[in-house]
C-alpha cells in the first residue's frame, strides 16, 4: 500500500507538471502564432506616421496607439497616486504602529488586498454615482476615477511590500544610525529605506503590472471601446486589456480579430517585461546580501 503510494506520487507530480507546462505552451504558442502576421508598427499606429501619432499631431483610428496610450496614462496616474500613500502607510505599520493598531490595520489591508477587482471597480462606480449626486452633470466615469479605483486596487500591495521590507532590516543595521544620534525619521529615510530600496522597487514594478493588466476595475469606471487619446482627466479613455475583452465578444471581421491577437501579444509582452524586471530587481538585492 505504502510503496504503491510512493511509486504513484512521482507519476502524479510529473503528470501535473506536464499538464501545466502544456497549458502554458498552448497559450503562448497560440498567441504568437495568431499575432505573428500583424506584429509590426502599423499594429500600433495604423497608417499614421509614428512621430505624428506620439506628438498628437494626427489621431490614430485603426491602430492600438490610443489604447496603449490610455493604459500608460492610467497606470501612470494610479501609481503616482498610490506609491506615496502606500509607502507612507507601510512605514507607519512597520515603524510607528502599536501592536493592537498594527493587527487591526493589517486585517483591513488583507481584506482590501483580497477584494475581487470587480468589487473595487464597483466601489469606484459607487463613488462616481455619489459624486454625480453632489455635482450633477459635471462628473461621470472618467480617466481620473478609473485611476483612483486602480490606486485602491494596488495600495495594499505597496503597503505590504514596504512594511515587510522595513521589518526585514536586521537589528544591527537598524540600531547603527540611532546610536550615532539620528532621529527616527532620519533613520527611516537615510538608512532603512535605502537599504531595502530594490525590494520596494520590485514591489512597485509588480504593482504596475497588476494595474496594467486589470480589466474589471476600469470596465466599471470609465473605459470605452473607442475614445481616442484623453485630453483631460475627466474624459473617457481606451485601454489595452479592455480592448482585448471587447474584441473577443464584438469583433466583426477577421482583421479586427487579428488586431485583437496583436493587442493580446502586446499586453503579454508588456506584463512579461514588468515581471522580469521585478524579478531581477529583487534578485540583485539577494545577491548583494549574500556577498
Amino acid at each position: 500500500m505504502r510503496t504503491l503510494l510512493e511509486k504513484s506520487v512521482p507519476l502524479l507530480a510529473w503528470a501535473g507538471f506536464t499538464v501545466l507546462a502544456g497549458a502554458l505552451a498552448a497559450i503562448l504558442g497560440y498567441i504568437v502564432m495568431r499575432s505573428w502576421a500583424v506584429l509590426h508598427l502599423s499594429l500600433l499606429f495604423g497608417d499614421v506616421a509614428p512621430i505624428d501619432a506620439i506628438f498628437l499631431r494626427h489621431p490614430v483610428f485603426d491602430g492600438l496607439f490610443p489604447a496603449v496610450a490610455g493604459t500608460f496614462l492610467l497606470v501612470l496616474i494610479a501609481v503616482l497616486l498610490a506609491v506615496p500613500v502606500g509607502m507612507a502607510a507601510g512605514i507607519y505599520l512597520a515603524e510607528y504602529a502599536g501592536y493592537r493598531m498594527k493587527s487591526c490595520l493589517s486585517l483591513l489591508f488583507d481584506i482590501l488586498a483580497g477584494l475581487p477587482s470587480v468589487v473595487v471597480g464597483l466601489a469606484g462606480f459607487s463613488l462616481t454615482i455619489l459624486l454625480h449626486k453632489v455635482f450633477p452633470g459635471k462628473i461621470g466615469p472618467c480617466l481620473l476615477l478609473s485611476a483612483l479605483a486602480l490606486c485602491f486596487l494596488i495600495l495594499p500591495y505597496l503597503i505590504r511590500t514596504t512594511q515587510t521590507a522595513l521589518e526585514s532590516v536586521p537589528l544591527s543595521l537598524r540600531q547603527t544610525a540611532p546610536a550615532l544620534g539620528a532621529t527616527k525619521l532620519q533613520n527611516i529615510c537615510k538608512v532603512l529605506l535605502p537599504s531595502k530600496l530594490t525590494d520596494i522597487l520590485g514591489g512597485i514594478i509588480l504593482a504596475v503590472g497588476r494595474a496594467a493588466e486589470d480589466t474589471a476595475v476600469i470596465m466599471l469606471t470609465g473605459v470605452v471601446a473607442s475614445a481616442g487619446i484623453p485630453r483631460s482627466l475627466f474624459e473617457q479613455f481606451e485601454a489595452l486589456p479592455f480592448y482585448i475583452y471587447y474584441i473577443s465578444s464584438q469583433y466583426t471581421n477577421a482583421e479586427e480579430l487579428q488586431t485583437g491577437f496583436g493587442a493580446a501579444m502586446l499586453l503579454l509582452v508588456l506584463c512579461g517585461i514588468l515581471f522580469l524586471l521585478a524579478f531581477f530587481t529583487q534578485q540583485t538585492l539577494s545577491r548583494h546580501f549574500r556577498r
Binding site: P84, V85, G86, A88, A89, I91, Y92, L93, E95, Y96, A97, C104, L105, L108, F109, I111, L112, L115, V119, V120, L122, A123, S126, L127, I129, L130, F152, L155, P156, I159, K184, L185
Partner: peptide
C-alpha cells in the same frame, strides 16, 4: 512627518471600511 504616515495608514484602513459602507448605502 510621523503624523503624515499615520494619516496615510488610517486613510487606507478607512477606505476599506468605506467600500463596505458605500455598498450598503447604494444598495
Amino acid at each position: 512627518m510621523g503624523v503624515l504616515f499615520q494619516l496615510a495608514a488610517y486613510g487606507c484602513g478607512l477606505l476599506t471600511i468605506a467600500v463596505l459602507v458605500m455598498m450598503f448605502q447604494l444598495g
